[in-house]
């Protein structure tokens, strides 16, 4: 979807257009769920948190100012804060390991033919095993497609710090995958 259409849809959603809100949900729900899942590592909590995220979006969308931040960055900021709240409430350890049952049950898309299933599992577990900040950077950069400056704003860090996090996360993933360190 091009930027103009997205902007138009966001503007309509701000005005309470149900159809536009539905389309925005369709566009971003997978990314939000994936981001949450990498953090919490289980389906039930991921679903609860994802639900919370979209309810917050609903409450807060009238306050969203398109000129100040991209919608995607705003959305992931809500997701990140909701994950942080989740950690605070449950006192769970941030380090998570993906539940292999989910992959076996087909809830994780494994249609990708380029990478074998084992490697995918390895990568997902490796990402889940990164530090919270590194995980944020990898998911937001690789999957959500946010730019370094947007991630820096979202995490409250400098762009250089975000690039350093990205670099270290990649090195760690490479090591897990058996490449050079």
């Amino acid at each position: 979807m091009d930027d103009k259409k997205l902007t138009d849809m966001i503007e309509r959603a701000i005005k309470g257009d149900v159809q536009a809100l539905g389309r925005l949900y369709d566009l971003f729900v997978d990314d939000i769920y994936g981001y949450v899942f990498y953090h919490v590592g289980n389906r039930e909590d991921s679903e609860d948190i994802t639900s919370d995220v979209f309810l917050k979006v609903l409450k807060g969308i009238k306050q969203f100012i398109p000129t100040q931040v991209s919608f995607k960055a705003w959305l992931f900021k809500i997701a990140r804060n909701t994950v942080i709240d989740y950690y605070r409430k449950t006192s769970k350890i941030k380090k998570t390991v993906l539940n292999e049952d989910l992959i076996d049950s087909g809830m994780i898309d494994t249609n990708d033919v380029e990478i074998d299933r084992f490697t995918q599992q390895l990568i997902k577990n490796a990402i889940a095993g990164l530090s919270s900040d590194q995980k944020d950077v990898v998911v937001l950069r690789f999957y959500a497609g946010l730019k370094i400056n947007e991630i820096a704003t979202l995490l409250g860090k400098s762009e250089e710090a975000v690039m350093a996090l990205q670099h270290r996360a990649l090195k760690r993933l490479t090591k897990v995958l058996g490449g050079a360190d």
Binding site: D30, S46, I115
Partner: peptide, 24 residues
């Protein structure tokens, strides 16, 4: 390349549809 080609964990379609209904 490996990370970008690895799909994100996706939600259960039933959950997705149900949340959409609630959301809208």
């Amino acid at each position: 390349v490996t990370v970008t080609e690895t799909a994100m964990p996706k939600p259960d379609p039933r959950f997705k549809a149900s949340l959409r209904g609630r959301f809208t």
